[in-house]
Design a protein around this nucleic acid. Structure first.
Lengths: 338, 338
DNA sequence: TATCTGTGCTAAATCGATTTTGTTGAAATT
DNA sequence: AATTTCAACAAAATCGATTTAGCACAGATA
């Protein structure tokens, strides 16, 4: 019950292994194999169910036809949607995907990248976390194809795709302000990532544009590594300390979920006691009464664009990239909370 | 900037490639390599940062050191927890994991399995869906290591791990009945899978044991492939048609979430208007007021056991399996809904 | 002294493909 | 008629490891 090899097929077709290889790889014409012979080979290969040995091909060609997808958390909903699209798109192009999660472990990011390197993935799709900058830089310097998603490092010159964070927050803020709300709180984490900064910039800019003063005490920066319970308490303290707030903008869905818990705990009603708006949708927001309004990330668009950018890099004979930085607009979804 | 090969290391250490291979694979003693030479090789390999070429190793040894994990949906929360544990456990043992989802596409299951076969995974971890029986049977007949999770096919003789569905439902039912509730509805899907049947058996058995008549009209079988909206309507009709119900047991978390939506839509209050209990926990259930009581799956236990069973099969020189079928008890979590 | 045994390594075969270089006979050119 | 050219494949090198078989030398045995 051994595996059927190319040599077997060659024997069955009465030709040399190389001939079979040429034909099966579409180089028959180029190598002047007669149509008669070619079609015979095709037939034999077909009905014998021959499948090339992946590892052998990889070894010889130096291409693994595998992409590495590195995300922060494999259990997040962002990853879930991302993975689905990327897997589909990659498969369409004859690539496999291996997933890895850093699980919020800064150090693990580097290890992962090295591990994937050992495995010889042809290209990387990465949602960068704070601790991964050096490793990513290293990859780029080695001319490994890399595309960043959801965020990027200004210092690293490699393509990236993300939602237009600034514009997304603007959309939400305009809605809130349009409803006459002016005391708007902003909750964020203290990690130093581009997308977080952009969201904050969206918040302050929107206020300024409407001549609403930006108050420091209306902005809460929660620490990233923190016990869930501590964050909840801090959040509650924030709301209690600013009773004048008539709306809160949560800059990530994780923060938004914490917010829901605190708001329920305090017995506040959305949207009357307090309006809530959140960046990045989540299953819970659809369901949780009265429905949480969000800025939805165009995850499918991000994934498709990222794959395109990566494939472009993998395609040796394609010219230089035109667009190396892509920003896709988010979509404001109005539900009951704001 | 080429890759460092074993040959390079050999040259640097002044020995033959084979010698390096022996030493690095721990066969130095066996091959009578002097400690002096061995440690020199180790040093050179270490500080040169040599990493063996995965594909070459795979081709030669015939082992890919990769496991295939096939699940229904990569976006489900069940998968999320499962994947995390499996990835960790696999890594600990020097294995990688490639994930694939059938995305509720019966036919896709087979394709996936074949695709993984091409890729030469060493073993399979599968949560079986209805359409996959033949393909799995095929794998088992080829003596490929396979472990099923979450469900199994009685006809296929391969190890499996799952929650004790019967007992889990019993726990929940006993709680409901203990609170004096007797008109308990049961919502399930119509797929013919062991775990579904076991849950139903748990329901009916619990009722019978307490001398409560089992009424057919209190059991709702929703069709699997169905528009979300249709399911919602059918569910609502079911509740309206049985106003006497004082509790509903949802047999999967997907159904439970639909239930929450319908209950909210109908303006019913949990647990007073209607108590709700759900099999299989979900993020939403923790948060959704008043908190949905559930039977939680011991996902980590399932994952660890599954890996153990698979590794045992991969270990050629390990005796025959003792336990080939493992059932792990679930945990009843009391929240506000029941 | 000739043969055997064991030590400590090296040479070469192998895994299953791809790709470069060779070979052969026939037609075309000089 | 001798040399080129070309079609149509075959042979062999190659990718980077593992593993089996082999080789040279020292000491032990007959």
């Amino acid at each position: 019950m051994k595996r059927l090899t190319l040599k077997d097929v060659a024997k069955m077709a009465g030709v040399a292994p190389s001939t079979v290889s040429f034909v099966l790889n579409g180089k028959g014409k180029q190598m002047r194999i007669r149509d008669e012979v070619a079609s015979r080979i095709m037939q034999v290969a077909e009905k014998s169910g021959y499948e090339p040995h992946r590892m052998a091909v990889n070894l010889r060609t130096g291409q693994s036809k595998t992409l590495g997808l590195i995300v922060e958390s494999i259990s997040g909903s962002f990853f879930a949607s991302l993975a689905k699209t990327i897997e589909t798109e990659a498969e369409r192009r004859g690539y496999n995907v291996v997933y890895c999660s850093t699980e919020n472990n800064a150090q693990k990011g580097g290890e992962l990248i090295r591990m994937l390197g050992r495995q010889m993935v042809d290209g990387y799709l990465i949602t960068p976390a704070p601790g991964m900058e050096k490793e990513i830089q290293h990859l780029v310097q080695q001319h490994k194809p890399v595309v960043l998603m959801d965020s990027y490092f200004p210092a690293i010159k490699t393509p990236y795709v993300l939602i237009n964070n600034f514009d997304g927050v603007q959309q939400g803020m305009k809605h809130l302000i349009g409803k006459g709300l002016t005391k708007i709180g902003f909750v964020m984490v203290d990690v130093k990532l581009i997308q977080i900064e952009e969201r904050l910039r969206g918040y302050t800019t929107a206020l300024k544009e409407h001549k609403i003063p930006v108050k420091k005490k209306h902005i809460l920066q929660l620490q990233y590594h923190r016990q869930r319970e501590d964050s909840l308490n801090e959040l509650q303290a924030f709301i209690e300390a600013n009773p004048e707030l008539d709306a809160i903008f949560f800059s990530t869905n994780y923060l938004g979920i914490l917010g829901l818990e605190v708001i329920a705990r305090m017995g506040l009603k959305m949207p009357d006691d307090i309006a809530v708006l959140c960046f990045d949708d989540h299953d819970i927001f659809r369901l949780y009464p009265p429905g949480i309004s969000v800025i939805e990330q165009p995850i499918e668009g991000i994934a498709k664009t990222a794959i395109d950018l990566l494939m472009h890099q993998l395609d040796k004979n394609s010219g230089p990239m035109k667009k190396t930085a892509v920003e896709i607009p988010g979509k404001f979804i109005l539900r009951g909370s704001a």
